[in-house]
C-alpha cells in the first residue's frame, strides 16, 4: 500500500463552544483528486484551514508523506507544498495581478533579516509566465484584481498555486459566483491536476462537479466524516442520501 500524501488522525477543533471537527480521520493518496462535500457548517472549511495553517487543531495528528508535521502557520503549509484557494479570500482586490501573485513570497534583490527590495523585473516576468502557464489571457500584469471577473480571479489564484509548485492544491468552493463557462474551465483544470503531479482536494456543494472531476468523494456532516468512497463505487444518489 502506498503511503498517503496527507494523513489526518483524530482531528478535533473547537471554536469557543462549537465542536466544529469531531475526530476526523482522512487519507489522501498522492495524485488523486479528493472531493469533500457536506452541508453548510459541516466543518469542511475548518478542516482545510487547519491543513493550510490558518487555524490550529485542538487535538489530533497530521502526517505528510508519513512524517508527523506541525502546520503552525500558512508559511509552514506552503513550505510543505500545500497551496490553498479559498472561497473568496485568496486575493487582494486593491493590488495588481503581479503583486498578488507574490504577496508574502516576493523575489528580492537583497534582504536583511527577511526585508528587502523587490526585484520588480523578475516579478513581472514570472507573473506573465505563471499566468500564461495556466492558459489565462490577461491584458496586463499591472491590472488590479478588482478589474477582473470572478473566473479570471480564480485563474490568477490557480496560477499562483501552480507557480509555487504546489504538491497539494486545496480548492474551497472555487466555482462559487462563476459563470458556466468559467466553471467548466476551473473543473477541467482540477481534473488535470494529477497529470501535473499535483494532488487535489476539492470542496464543492455541487455533486455533479465532484463526480466530473474527482477520484474519490468524502462526505462530512456535523464535524464528522460519514462516507468515504471511490467515485466508481458510489453514485450521486447515495451521496445525496448521506448528506
Amino acid at each position: 500500500m502506498i503511503t498517503p500524501l496527507i494523513s489526518v488522525r483524530n482531528l478535533h477543533k473547537w471554536y469557543s463552544g462549537v465542536h466544529a471537527l469531531k475526530g476526523i480521520n482522512l487519507d489522501v493518496r498522492p495524485r488523486e483528486v479528493c472531493g469533500l462535500v457536506g452541508d453548510n457548517g459541516a466543518g469542511k472549511s475548518t478542516l482545510i484551514k487547519i491543513l493550510a495553517g490558518v487555524h490550529r487543531p485542538d487535538q489530533g495528528q497530521i502526517r505528510i508523506d508519513g512524517q508527523l508535521v506541525d502546520i503552525s502557520s500558512p508559511k509552514s503549509a506552503m513550505r510543505l507544498g500545500i497551496e490553498t484557494i479559498y472561497q473568496d479570500n485568496s486575493m487582494v482586490p486593491t493590488m495588481s495581478i503581479c503583486r498578488n501573485l507574490f504577496v508574502g513570497r516576493e523575489p528580492l534583490l537583497f534582504s536583511i533579516g527577511g526585508l528587502g527590495l523587490i526585484d520588480h523585473r523578475r516579478m513581472r516576468e514570472e507573473a506573465i509566465q505563471a499566468v500564461a502557464n495556466v492558459d489565462l489571457h490577461l491584458r496586463s500584469a499591472d491590472a488590479l484584481l478588482s478589474e477582473l471577473s470572478g473566473g479570471q480571479r480564480q485563474g490568477v489564484a490557480i496560477a499562483r498555486a501552480m507557480h509555487f509548485k504546489s504538491r497539494v492544491l486545496i480548492l474551497d468552493e472555487p466555482t462559487n459566483h462563476l459563470s458556466v463557462k468559467e466553471t467548466t474551465k476551473v473543473l477541467t483544470f482540477v481534473r488535470m491536476l494529477p497529470e501535473q503531479g499535483v494532488t487535489g482536494l476539492l470542496i464543492s456543494h455541487n455533486l455533479q462537479h465532484v463526480f466530473q472531476s474527482c477520484d474519490r468523494v468524502v462526505v462530512m456532516a456535523r464535524g464528522e466524516i460519514v462516507l468515504d468512497k471511490a467515485i466508481e463505487e458510489t453514485s450521486i444518489d447515495e451521496i445525496s442520501e448521506s448528506l
Binding site: S73, P74, T84, V92, L115, L117
Partner: peptide, 22 residues
C-alpha cells in the same frame, strides 16, 4: 519597492487574504 510595502498594501487591502498568504 520593498516586500514590507507589499505586505502593508495587502494587509490593508484584504486582511484575511494577506494572513492566509503568510
Amino acid at each position: 519597492g520593498s516586500n514590507l510595502g507589499n505586505w502593508i498594501q495587502a494587509t490593508g487591502g484584504f486582511f484575511d487574504a494577506a494572513a492566509a498568504l503568510g
